[in-house]
Design a binder for these strands. Structure first.
Lengths: 302, 302
DNA sequence: CTTCTAATTTGTCCAGGACAAATATAATGA
DNA sequence: TCATTATATTTGTCCTGGACAAATTAGAAG
């Protein structure tokens, strides 16, 4: 299939990359990239390849790199950076079927992907499945995407399938009488909910009751929801795609709208760089911290 | 619980309402609303109540109202407008359990909500369930929200539960050998995927094979996905929350990246105002048009 | 090698102006 | 009176160039 020359307005690029118009314009002036053409009206027109590069840069920034360093790197240097990332942390089993899943993803066959994952879930049980499969595979999928080895829609498909699998499994286990009552969601602009569901799995297995509200809840309404559902905890997840500088402000903003008795648990890759801000806000940098915070909570309340 | 005085920056308001900074500033100048305070730095600071009002106004604009008319209305007049909307279209059964579902929603009890809907699904079967329950209830839920009678998180919960129910039911019916192969997703900024799933139900029942990729796929990648999955059709859904003026441009943009043999089916409330643009793009203003377009497609290819 | 202070980097906000596409209103002819 | 065309208004988006503070890095002093 041939390549159609396409070019996007600054507004479209903002929507597709999540980088604000202001940032796009400032980068252009400060670093010389992006370097859009202009149409007859004098308006910026971004070639598709620059948009792809912008996405990659944004991802690397989520990993802690700085724009001034990234902006003048060659394409291959960018991909290299994406490769040398965190070690997949997971247990010993890693690597074995992780590769297999990736292959299935690239084969564009939702049914067998779902089948394979479903079988793994049966074999390993929920707890192990989350720990040894869902988490490492998610990381590897993210990395592969960053290296340009996996397309966006392949990543989406993975999320979809995994999401469904987990939700289906979780539901029957989620006893309404469980404690603590944890309200789970993400803030606006944070569309990734897979991490949230993996966390929910751990929580439910640990005896909590999860109220899963789906992603992208306005902060204000998170407060209302916590009140209405009588939640003991509000759990949020942040991916690396969420702008680092906004994490803390948004947590504090939420803090204001919650009764002081309600704790905030913030987890996910996008939260790793933060120190515990106290005030009932807990930063869960790794999945296992979830368990410790939870047992701590239970202890406190009994 | 008491009301915390909260105030948001223009950027936060943009994220929470989906109204761009440019629009917020222009409205302020042109209509005198919103009317934010200023902090010591001279920057806009929006009180929570104005943000709520902005959300309401945005919703009414999606229904076809114009900003200049809305901006100076009183709170009650706004709510009134939200009430006099489209007639729930649905069959005779409407109203009976629609109210019941609303009540369950307001009771904040996910389990019984899911239970009730699940039972309805069993009783009615998928086709009727979508037609007589999912569609009318979705409309009513949207309206109730607009009138301020339903909170955002209650709407989210509804979407979550319904989404799960449909996905679970659909999967076993979705034969890979079905024709046409329909790729289903939404464009960036369009986060509502419930309409898409309802459409998928009709399609699968009609013998199509749906590849459901989840919401918010960059346009570029929709093209790649269509190629990779060898899709015959790309189906998109637009809610009223999606800015009207952007619908057609985004469809044309997508058109460019697809092989001419691939059709585009665009449905949902956000598409009602459009005329058929031709060129393999079909506008499905109502759910039943889906069936006719589909049978037409099958006819064409045999 | 730490700790504190002074650059530098970076994202966000502001004002005010320009423009074209969409929509409404007026004018015209059948 | 109705339909059509021309004119006016409304509205969202984009532009430039400047300002500022929070976050980060580099440098100085202990």
């Amino acid at each position: 299939m041939d390549f159609y020359e396409t070019a996007l307005s600054i507004g479209t690029v903002e929507r597709e990359t999540g980088l604000s118009k202001d940032v796009l314009r400032k980068w252009e002036i400060r670093y010389g990239f992006p370097n859009p053409d202009r149409d007859t009206k004098g308006e910026r027109v971004y070639p598709a390849e620059q948009v792809a590069r912008l996405r990659q840069i944004k991802h690397l920034m989520g990993l802690g790199h700085r724009p001034s360093k990234l902006m003048n790197l060659s394409q291959s240097e960018l991909s290299d950076l994406a490769a040398h990332k965190t070690i997949p942390a997971g247990g010993s089993v890693t690597g074995a079927f992780v590769e297999e899943i990736l292959t299935l993803l690239r084969a564009h066959d939702p049914a067998s992907l779902k089948g394979r994952l479903g079988r793994l879930l049966q074999e390993q049980g929920l707890r192990l499945f989350v720990q040894d499969t869902a988490e490492p595979v998610s990381i590897v999928v993210g990395e592969a995407w960053a290296r340009g080895e996996l397309q966006v829609f392949e990543e989406h498909l993975y999320s979809e399938v995994m999401h469904n699998l987990l939700r289906g499994t979780l539901e029957p286990l989620n006893s309404p009488s469980g404690k603590p009552r944890v309200l789970m969601t993400t803030v606006p602009e944070e569309g990734h909910s897979l991490g949230l569901l993996m966390a929910a799995s751990s929580l439910v297995l640990g005896g909590a009751h999860c109220i899963y509200l789906g992603p992208q809840m306005p902060i204000d309404d998170i407060g209302n929801a916590a009140r209405a559902h009588n939640a003991n905890v509000v759990a949020l997840s942040f991916s690396t795609a969420y702008p680092r500088r906004r994490v803390l402000p948004v947590l504090l903003e939420l803090r204001q709208r919650l009764s002081p008795a309600v704790e905030i648990w913030a987890g996910g890759m996008g939260v790793r760089h933060l120190a515990e801000p106290g005030d009932g806000i807990h930063i869960l940098a790794t999945p296992d911290q979830l368990e410790s915070v939870m047992s701590q909570w239970i202890e406190n309340k009994s």
